[in-house]
């Protein structure tokens, strides 16, 4: 397996996949900077909560785009070069799928760590109120990663099965928008949509007073059933994607 993963690293050479992650992180950094720029000292006291509420919302769009682009970039080299028919005579088809998933996950991990670095960096520099909430930040990293990997494996499955990469890219974008808008719908509906799990697993809630127009953030309990469901989704999508990839004829 290690050889197959190492070869994914070599295949990605010159593909500038990290650039996509970097650009999306830059967008997130700019947005975070802009969002926090008009906050006064009182607002900054809730800075950590503000970020832990806003970042998952933004992730509904950012992370699916990263997942779609990474999966597509890793798979289209195989379609263009018609390499699956050779690879499948050398290593097990399941291993091809797994190696690509593991290498793709590194990019998703990179993006999640990048977000964490942005939050911690800005929090420390701008002196958000209270100590750094390490527990919540680790929770954020894990939940973001869990949802992102589920979306990534969905994208990878389609990218590996369909040669025309416009199909998975379009699905990824549509999914992201559905995820974002589903946050305005009841939780029951949110749990049916893969892309809305960034919202489901949010650790922070928000109260908005229409009279004073003031917002107040508060810590929320972790949605354990939601976490369980996303794990089930992950297992199902990985399993189905792998089966379809193994069964298809080259």
């Amino acid at each position: 397996m290690s050889a197959a993963i190492w070869m994914e690293v070599l295949k990605a050479k010159g593909r500038k996949i990290w650039l996509v992650v970097a650009i999306m992180m830059a967008v997130q950094l700019l947005w975070a900077g802009w969002a926090i720029s008009n906050k006064d000292a009182n607002d900054l006291a809730q800075g950590w909560l503000f970020f832990l509420y806003q970042f998952p919302m933004l992730n509904c769009i950012i992370m699916p785009v990263i997942a779609a682009v990474v999966a597509s970039r890793l798979s289209d080299v195989e379609h263009k070069g018609q390499t699956f028919k050779l690879l499948e005579t050398i290593i097990p088809t399941k291993r091809i799928f797994a190696a690509k998933f593991i290498w793709g996950s590194i990019y998703m991990l990179g993006a999640a760590l990048g977000q964490l670095a942005i939050m911690i960096g800005m929090g420390v520099v701008l002196h958000f109120g209270g100590p750094v909430p390490w527990g919540a930040l680790v929770g954020y990293l894990l939940f973001t990663l869990m949802v992102s990997l589920t979306i990534y494996v969905f994208q990878q499955g389609i990218s590996m099965l369909v040669a025309n990469q416009m199909v998975p890219m379009t699905l990824g974008l549509i999914g992201g928008f559905i995820g974002l808008f589903s946050m305005f719908f009841p939780q029951g509906f949110q749990k049916l949509v893969l892309w809305s799990y960034y919202g489901v697993l949010m650790q922070v809630g928000m109260n908005w007073d229409p009279i004073t127009r003031a917002t107040d953030f508060y810590w929320k309990a972790i949605d354990w059933p939601g976490l369980g469901l996303i794990l089930v989704f992950f297992g199902l999508i990985y399993g189905v994607g792998q089966i379809l990839f193994v069964r298809r004829e080259v």
Partner: peptide
């Protein structure tokens, strides 16, 4: 059918 290769390498 046709050779398998990675064009960017």
């Amino acid at each position: 059918e046709s050779p398998s290769y990675y064009g960017h390498l």
